[in-house]
Design a protein around this nucleic acid. Structure first.
Lengths: 140, 140
DNA sequence: GGAGATCCGTTGTATAGTGCAACAAAATCC
DNA sequence: GGATTTTGTTGCACTATACAACGGATCTCC
């Protein structure tokens, strides 16, 4: 087994490599949705509606960036803003039907791509890899 | 053990989440070097010098993008271009001493951050996680 | 050995994503 | 009730990126 430090270097390098290519692949996979807009749509759907400030905090993005992305998604008819009855400052963001359809389609295409890439992995290895990634993601 | 499809969804989601945050963290970690310039400097050093076309292919970037990043790195004195004796069209890119120093420092800071994040992981888990990432990265 | 194809890098142009700062409106806190 | 905080928008600047057009060098094939 390689040393702990060398393994950490590998993790760092591979995760960074993945990040470098992610945007490119995302745009190839689904030209209508960028990595960011896809992620925003996914988050608000997963949470059953949330505010722009929550999105910004979750993705470590500036609120102005989120504001513009939300505007773009709204113009595309993929998302709508609802007044928050408890707080007139905030808006609750929800995907529209069109947004949900597009999101399902994008998820499906992504799943196909990932499945192809992991085709020669055993079920056990896939499950363990998923566990490690979840654990890693939960740390920070 | 969760199903294969659900594990693939997890892998997709976690890797995407990582990609979303990578740029932000990279700029926090080392303001002088963006994720891209860091990666370029790292690649040409790891390979012991390579051409811009190799960099573009490796990162799936347009050659014009690489050309501009290389120009920026050269202006910062972190990289130099050498004539390729075998092919007058190409240039061989190499990190300067300053570039190597900065790269070592950036790597060290990144390693510290990763080490902290993985502090409660066992050596075995880290090694397996690194293996999975390497295997994943090698697929595509 | 030469003409055309190909490869390598640069530059012009356009676009997207991002952050910071300033702002407005609403809520919260003494 | 005034000060502070929160939420979102907008103006501005900058970076990263792609595509297209180009110039120079090399290679291929006849």
């Amino acid at each position: 087994m390689p040393g702990r430090e060398s393994s950490i270097d590998t993790i760092q390098r591979e995760l960074t490599a993945f990040a470098r290519r992610a945007r490119h692949k995302a745009s190839q996979l689904h030209p209508d949705l960028s990595l960011v807009t896809y992620s925003i749509l996914d988050l608000i759907t997963e949470r059953g509606g949330c505010r722009a400030a929550d999105v910004a905090a979750h993705f470590m993005l500036d609120k102005s960036t989120v504001s513009r992305q939300v505007t773009a998604l709204e113009k595309l008819g993929l998302l709508r803003r609802e007044a928050d009855p408890d707080d007139q400052r905030g808006q609750i963001l929800r995907a529209t039907e069109a947004g949900l359809t597009l999101l399902r389609d994008a998820n499906e295409q992504r799943r196909i791509a990932f499945t192809a890439r992991l085709s020669d992995w055993s079920d056990e290895d896939i499950a363990r890899f998923a566990d490690y990634l979840t654990r890693y993601g939960a740390e920070g």
